[in-house]
Simulated scan of single mutants.
Amino acid sequence: MRKIQLGTTDTMITDYCLGTMTWGNQTPEADAHRQMDMALAAGINIVDTAEMYPVNPVRAETVGNTETILGNWNRANPARRGDYILATKITGKNAAFVRMGEDITAASFTAALDASLARLGTEYIDIYQMHWPNRGSYHFRQNWGYDPSAQVKSVTLAHMEEILDAADRMIKAGKMRYFALSNDTVWGVAQWMRLSEERGLPRVISLQNEYSLLCRLYDTDFAELAVNEQLTLLAYSPLAAGLLTGKYQNGAIPEGSRMAGNGDLGGRKSPRVFDAVAAYLDLAQKHGIDPVHMALAFTVQRPFPVSTIFGATTSAQLTRILDGLDVTLSGDILDEIDAIHRAHPLPY
C-alpha cells in the first residue's frame, strides 16, 4: 500500500482512507467493526469520521453514534489505537441538530473535541477538522448560486485567529495532533495558512473536499495551492455517492441504497449525470477494469497530494473495494478519462 506525507508533517498516511459515515444507520455496529479489522489488515492506516455522523439521513437522535461505534472498537482493541491515524470533525453552522446550529467558536471547538474524545474512547485525535467554515462555501452543490458578498473579512480573520489559538492549546494539551479543514475554499485555506505562519500557530495540514470523476472542482487553483503549500487532499465521495458504481443506471434504485433513503443523492442526481456515468462505465468495460477500481484509482493518481476516503455500507462492498487498491491506470486510460471529462464537465 502506497503511503504519502501528511501535509508538512513527518506522518505518513496510506493513499486510501476508510470512511465511516454510514456506521450506525445503514451499517450495523458488528459490520462496522469487521470493516475496521479488514481495512487495517489490508494496510490502511487512516480512518475518517465526524461528530455529526451517521448520515442518510442525519438525525438529531443519531448524532455522535458513528464515533461511539468506532470508540467501542477502540475500547475493545486498546493496543491497536496506534495502528491508524484517526480523523474527525467538528460540525459547523447550519446544522441545528448539533449545538443549536451555532458558529464554531473557541469554546465550541474545545467542547466538541472533548466530546469526540469521550465517544471515540481515545486520549487524542490525530487530525481534527472543521467540517465546513462559518462563513459558508460553495460545496454541497451550492456552487451554482454561490455569493460571498455578505462576508466581512475582518470578522472572518478574527474567527480564524481564535480557532487557531484554540487548536494550539489543544495540541499542547495532547488532545489533538494536527489541525485541518473541510469544505473550504482556496482563499479560505490560504488565509488560515498565512495567519498560522505569521503567528506561529498550527498549520492546516489537510483539506477534506469532494473529488471524483464527476466532481473535479479541485483540479485548478486548489491543485496549485496543494502542490506549492504541501496541503494533502482527503478526497470524499470518490464514487459520487454510488453513481460511479453503475447501480443507479436506467432508473434503478436498489433497496437499502443511499438513493432509496435520499432521493437526489445530495443534489448529485441530475438530468446529465447518467450520461456521464455511462461513458465512464463503458470505458471501464472496454479496458476490463471494475468501474469502482477505475474511479478510485483515478483519484489517487492526480498530480497533487491526495488520500481518498472510501466508504462501504457492508463488509461485502468493502471487500470489492480492497481488491482494487493496487490498481494503476495507464496513460492511455487517463487520456480517455480526460476526453470524457471534456464531453461531460460538471454533470451535477
Rank of each mutant, 00 (worst) to 15 (best):
G7W: 05
T8Q: 13
W23L: 04
G24L: 05
E29L: 05
A30W: 06
A32N: 10
R34A: 13
L40M: 14
G43A: 11
T49H: 09
E51Q: 14
M52D: 02
P54A: 11
P54V: 08
P57S: 07
P57Q: 10
R59E: 15
V63M: 10
N72W: 06
Y84I: 10
T88I: 11
I90L: 11
I90F: 04
I90R: 04
K93S: 08
A96G: 10
M100E: 15
A106N: 05
A106W: 05
A106S: 14
S108V: 02
E123Q: 15
Y124F: 14
I127M: 13
M130P: 04
N134R: 07
F140N: 13
G145W: 12
S154G: 01
D168F: 03
T185L: 14
G188M: 05
A190Y: 01
M193Y: 00
R199P: 02
R203E: 01
S206Y: 06
L207V: 12
C215T: 13
C215N: 10
D219V: 01
T220H: 12
D221V: 00
L225N: 01
Q230G: 02
L233F: 00
S237D: 10
P238K: 03
A240H: 03
L244N: 06
T245V: 03
Q249F: 04
G251F: 13
I253L: 01
E255N: 12
R258K: 10
G261M: 12
D264V: 07
D264F: 09
L265H: 06
G266C: 08
G266H: 09
G267E: 13
R268V: 01
L281A: 02
Q285P: 02
H293E: 13
A295P: 07
T299P: 03
V300N: 00
G311R: 12
T313Q: 12
A316N: 13
R320G: 02
D323L: 10
L325V: 11
I333Y: 06
A339Q: 14
A343R: 14
A343C: 04
Y348L: 03
